[in-house]
């Protein structure tokens, strides 16, 4: 187990260093100067130079890279060029929206997908199964931003149950916070649930063909009992893989939904920062997402070994 952890830690470190180099270099070659962006069309060149100096943009490239890497370890990520507040603070504030939103959406999609997928597999070939297959096909095909707009039109504009967007902050209470995240979470969850339900169904159908299910049935278990005791657990591996991918996607890829609901999340932060060339923010957010994805993959691997103990023993 120690060897396993060491190996993991080493590959983690290498991934992070390589990613940081790629992120930094790519953002260096992107055209656009944050100082020129902020000062607009009428500014004189010497004013832009003064601002570059004030922002620390005139330091050599390698010094800025080392300063940034050093900062990642100490949590000192520098000060945003545009917002003029510490990057770490900015990111932390956005995480308080993005992580709960991703978790909320993932919970919803799991709660929908598991029963639906299991039901469809258990009633294979029935009208229920056909309905689930058709419905999930629709769920995958419908773009989530369009679905989001539909939700806003029905629940915010017409019924007035929810506000059309924005986030009151957790200071306003957990209920208000969750309420503001409900429509965005549903919009994010439904397409994910559709994918997950289909994966669940096909994974279950595969395991239901296995010998041990036949054995279990031969032992006298009913179809339902065999399904619940043996098939579901064995079908979880592909489902977990998809879940891991989905969480990373929800964390980083909720940007369109964040725009539709004007939520102050990570996606919108990075989007605004890219267009304003607030590169000091962009690279730290991107690094954070890289680390998050690697971490989620790691957690998924651990989860595999919990679901299937044989996988844990092999390493």
């Amino acid at each position: 187990m120690t060897a396993f952890l060491f190996q993991r830690a080493l590959s983690f470190a290498i991934s992070v260093v390589v990613a940081s180099l790629v992120v930094f270099v790519v953002l260096e070659v992107v055209p656009g100067d944050p100082a020129a962006f902020m000062l607009g069309l009428n500014a004189a060149p010497d004013t832009v130079a003064a601002l570059r100096e004030q922002l620390g943009l005139d330091a050599p490239v390698w010094m800025r890279y080392l300063g940034w890497i050093g900062g990642i370890f100490t949590g000192e990520l520098g000060t945003s060029y545009t917002y003029r507040v510490p990057v770490a603070e900015l990111i932390a504030a956005r995480l308080w929206v993005s992580v709960p939103l991703a978790a909320y959406a993932l919970t919803l999609s799991t709660l929908i997908a598991f029963p639906v997928g299991i039901l469809a597999a258990a009633r294979r070939g029935s009208a229920v199964d056909a309905g689930v297959m058709g419905g999930t096909q629709l769920g995958i095909a419908v773009p989530n931003f369009w679905f989001a707009m539909l939700l806003v039109l029905v629940f915010s504009v017409t019924l007035r149950w929810f506000s059309a967007g924005g986030f009151p902050g957790w200071d306003a209470g957990a209920f208000e916070g969750l309420r503001a995240l409900t429509l965005p979470a549903i919009a994010l969850a439904l397409p994910q649930a559709a994918i997950l339900a289909r994966v669940m169904r096909s994974a279950l159908l595969d395991t239901l063909e296995e010998d041990y299910i036949r054995t279990a049935r031969a032992k006298g278990l009913t179809r339902g009992q065999a399904l619940w005791r043996h098939a579901v657990r064995n079908a979880l591996i592909p489902v977990l893989t998809i879940l891991g991918l989905q969480f990373s996607f929800l964390l980083a890829g909720a940007i369109i939904i964040e725009n539709v609901f004007f939520l102050p999340g990570l996606g919108r932060l990075v989007f605004q920062a890219i267009s304003a060339r607030d590169l000091i923010v962009v690279r730290s957010v991107v690094m954070l997402l890289v680390i998050a994805v690697i971490l989620v993959n790691f957690l998924v691997e651990i989860a595999y070994s919990l679901v299937d103990p044989r996988l844990g023993r092999r390493v």
Binding site: S156, S163, G165, F262
Partner: peptide, 18 residues
Amino acid sequence: FRFISDPTAAFAAMMAED
């Protein structure tokens, strides 16, 4: 002051009187 750049979101925010 609230910041809404998406045209559809802006429309919805007006209609919902947010």
